[in-house]
Design a protein around this nucleic acid. Structure first.
Length: 818
RNA sequence: GCCCCGAUAGCCCAAUGGCAGAGGCAGAGGACUUAAAAUCCUCCAAGUGUGGGUUCGACCCCCACUCGGGGCACCA
């Protein structure tokens, strides 16, 4: 009869013991260990934890637990991103209080995390929906307001008709609402923005520091998103208009090739230029059509170019040519100046437009490609300038420099940069978020709520109609919205919008250091100690939004002198998603795997190890490909070894079987290396290998009593503590030790055991393997070459031939080239 | 259309430019058992997507392509 290992009993057994020991408490003032900050992205409290959480937290836990074993004082906190639409929508659906729904889910998730053996420091927990937290959102907003970084403006904004709220650019995916996939429309509203564009250059340039530390993919996505382009702004005089029109171009070198100008149809400039031209009605008709077309239609890049001639002319500053001005929807109102110079010969979009409208095409760069007039394909290759006056014969870079220099003398042009990135719209017309701490007074205008009155707390939701109506539900709460103006005392109204929840998550990593401080957002000394985050772990879904905003906030706080670093997350690991049968799990697809079911069947450890072992952490895990039953089997094998050991705890390992000891130390070394390079699947494989070797040593090798077997069993327990905490703890106890194995410490590796006695050298002729010989690891090139020449196989292979070259790489290889 | 990443055994995945296989899943055979489960042992398979190149030597570096995944997309 084999002993059975009852996973559920073991789980219940250890939880209260861990609660008592608190192995992962990080706030002890006298802690002499060096510090490390390991952070998992905090969850949104919608229902219980799911498979995706399980993977993310299993991976983060390996890292946190590893650094604890290596002797670090690891801060590994958790919290909840607990403001947001789902709570509000659920509340509307059930006619309940979003607060109650939110905090119930939090307590369910918290209990699940504890059972999942997450190594969180439970004394550092925050919820962004607590007034103690969002007070500091408001404080930060006001600090930014003081610096001019928070401002209000009227502009057409992305509007989700289903959520009945505005969306940030970042929350519109392919013209659809990120949350509900409704088609996003435009609406002109007066809204609050944060001036992230002021930081565009630094957000871009500081990524150099993150190179090699963050996934290349994320850096690339952020670069793309910021979308800096370098070019020039050029002034074009307009006939019959006092002020010139400025255009932005990345190709000022092709200025001589400009044959017309295009302004965005929906821009104020177009509306102004058309006045008094006699074509007002044509323009109005065209604009109507443009406005009717949704963003989705606009996204189709292959649709034919349309536009209307405005019956006006611009003057090309380099040659005085008269350029007809057109309005079209292929020029964007909110990029650059909303007006372009069209160079159809060398820009495909301009060429398409020119051909549609029968406008002239003038080639000014000789690229060796076919004439765009004939082919309809704009030539964009490198070449020399032609038909360009003083620029003739120059290459692109020189022509750009020269034309800017020439025009800048008369202030007609200057070098300029442009960004795809727009300012961050943070107003939301919803209830469950941070109230914007501004009071609107009929006489004083917008007045910040005095700091002493923070937080501006949300009113009670009970009895409130939270259904989306296009204006914030807060506006309807008379007792809340009506306040005296802090400046003049006259009746005034609170701003009834709430903040985008991405504001909450843009600085939460700072708050963990000081969750109990009511008087400051964060304790400066604590933040100086713990930050920046050494290791951040989370999904690639936040590659742009959350990470960019957090980087922005960090730089703002740095500029305010409130932080001493400019990048919040030193290293980033993006885990993949958990799929089922090749696609994302969903109820509608019918491929949902419930975490609770998997845990009930296989136990926490088996699920954790399955997640970690499934493949590289950044790859998606297809649950159809993993075998939690196999993981459970492996854990059983490991556990049984701890029961087989017969030597006493504390036995001198150095008297143990040398062969096994070498395997143990090599394994410990490899596991460390694999964990530190995020190859957790490889680390688990090494533990499996060690278990296999130890099994063999017990059954048919040095025997269960050998000290090396105990050394190995303890190494297995400690290694497993990173990924299978219950099994590891159980093993550790059976091996005669006191809990917790999480604090056992990573065994010191004996370097003298890492070198092999003998290594196998490969003997090749012309790169083909002829024989293998055992040699000493420190053999010299000369000796190895000598052995090769004396080898029978080699002699046979090279008999009669002339040796042209011998490559020797002691102690691994000799290659004889004939 | 542009950019990024990937492709190794039936499957998931390993392999500082130097023996293609560490580990697992699935499969086959055996031991134990009255039997089954569990457990243990043994076995099994690809020459690394395709075509070139560099090199004494390429899964690894370079070029072109195919397929898959992802990002951006009228940003001047």
């Amino acid at each position: 009869m084999h002993e059975a290992y009852d996973v559920h009993h073991v789980q219940e057994k250890w939880l209260p013991i861990w609660d008592a020991i608190e192995p992962f408490k990080s706030g002890r003032a006298d802690d002499p260990r060096p510090k490390k900050y390991v952070l998992d992205m905090f969850p949104y409290p919608s229902g219980d934890l799911h498979m995706g959480h399980a993977e993310a937290y299993a991976l983060g836990d390996v890292i946190a637990r590893y650094w604890v074993q290596k002797g670090f004082n690891v801060m590994h906190p958790i919290g909840w991103d607990s403001f947001g639409l789902p709570a509000e929508n659920a509340a509307i659906k059930r006619n309940a209080d979003p607060r109650a729904w939110t905090y119930e889910n939090i307590s369910v998730q918290k209990a699940s995390m504890r059972r999942f053996a997450c190594s969180f420091d439970w004394d550092r927990v925050l919820h962004t929906s607590d007034p103690e937290y969002y007070k500091w959102n408001q404080w930060l907003f006001l600090e930014m307001y003081k610096k001019g970084l928070a401002y209000r403006k009227d502009s057409p904004v992305n509007w989700c008709p289903n959520c009945q709220t505005v969306l940030a650019n970042e929350q519109v995916v392919a013209g659809l609402c990120e949350r509900c996939d409704s088609e996003v429309t435009k609406k002109k509203l007066n809204q609050w923005y944060l001036k992230i564009t002021d930081y565009a250059d630094r957000l871009l340039d500081d990524m150099e520091q993150l190179e090699g530390q963050w996934p290349e993919k994320v850096l690339m996505m952020q670069r793309n998103w910021i979308g800096r382009s370098i070019g020039a702004e050029v002034e074009f005089e307009i006939e019959g208009r006092a002020k010139p029109v400025v255009v932005y171009t990345t190709r000022p070198d092709t200025l001589h090739g400009a044959t017309f100008m295009v302004v965005a149809a929906d821009s104020e400039l177009a509306a102004e230029l058309v006045q008094g031209t006699g074509v007002e009605s044509d323009f109005a008709k065209y604009l109507e059509g443009v406005k009717a077309a949704s963003d989705i239609d606009r996204l189709a890049t292959d649709r034919p170019k349309t536009g209307v001639f405005l019956n006006r002319y611009a003057i090309n500053p380099v040659n005085g040519a008269k350029l007809p001005i057109w309005a079209s929807d292929y020029v964007l109102a909110d990029y650059g100046t909303g007006a372009i110079m069209a160079v159809p010969a060398h820009d495909q979009r301009d060429l398409d437009f020119a051909r549609a409208m029968k406008l002239p095409v003038s080639v000014v760069v000789e690229t060796g490609e076919e004439d765009p007039n004939a082919t309809g394909v704009a030539t964009t290759g490198e070449g020399v300038m032609i038909n360009s006056g003083s620029l003739n014969g120059l290459k692109k870079a020189d022509a750009i420099a020269k034309v800017i220099e020439e025009l800048s003398a008369s202030k007609k042009a200057k070098a300029a940069k442009n960004y795809r990135l727009r300012d961050w719209l943070i107003s939301r017309q919803r209830f469950w978020g941070t109230p914007i701490p501004i009071i609107h007074c009929p006489t004083c205008g917008e007045v910040p709520v005095p700091e002493s009155q923070l937080p501006v707390e949300l009113p009670d939701a009970v009895g409130l109609d939270l259904k989306p109506k296009g204006t914030s539900p807060l506006g309807a709460v008379e007792s809340w919205v009506n306040v005296p103006c802090p400046a003049c005392g006259a009746p005034a109204k609170r701003d009834a919008d709430t903040m985008d929840t991405f504001v909450d998550s843009s600085w939460y990593f700072l708050r963990y250091t000081s969750v109990n401080r009511g008087d400051v957002a964060y304790d400066r000394a604590e933040v100086d100690t713990w930050l920046p985050v050494d290791q951040y772990v989370g999904g690639v879904t936040h590659a742009i939004l959350h990470l960019l905003y957090s980087r922005f906030f960090t730089k703002v706080l740095f500029d305010m002198g409130k932080l001493n670093f400019t990048e919040p997350f030193t290293k980033l690991l993006n885990q993949g998603m958990v799929l089922m049968d090749g696609s994302a799990m969903s109820k509608s697809r019918g491929n949902l795997v419930r975490l609770s079911d998997e845990l009930a069947t296989h136990g926490v450890d088996a699920i954790r190890i399955s997640m970690v072992f499934a493949g590289p952490p950044e790859d998606d895990v297809d649950w159809a490909d993993v075998s939690p039953a196999g993981s459970a089997k492996f854990l059983n094998r490991a556990w049984r070894i701890s029961g087989d050991v017969t030597s006493k705890a504390g036995v001198d390992f150095t008297t143990g079987d040398l062969a096994l000891r070498k395997i143990v130390h090599k394994a410990l070394h490899d596991i460390s290396f694999a964990v530190e390079s995020f190859r957790f699947n490889v680390a688990v494989a090494r533990v499996m290998e060690l278990v296999n070797h130890t099994r063999k040593a017990i059954d048919s090798g040095c025997g269960a009593a050998d000290p090396a077997v105990r050394e190995s069993a303890e190494a297995i327990a400690i290694s497993l503590s990173l990924v299978a905490p219950y099994t590891a703890e159980e093993m550790w106890e059976r091996l005669g030790h006191k809990p917790s194995v999480a604090l056992a410490g990573w065994p010191a590796i004996d370097q003298s055991l890492l070198g092999a006695d003998n290594v196998t050298a490969i003997l090749q002729v012309n790169g083909k393997i002829k024989d293998r010989i055992e040699v000493a690891p420190n053999i010299s090139d000369a000796d190895l070459e000598k052995l090769a020449m004396e080898n029978a196989e080699i002699k046979a292979a090279i008999a009669g031939a002339t040796i042209s070259k011998v490559i020797t790489r002691a102690p691994k290889l000799v290659n004889i080239v004939l």
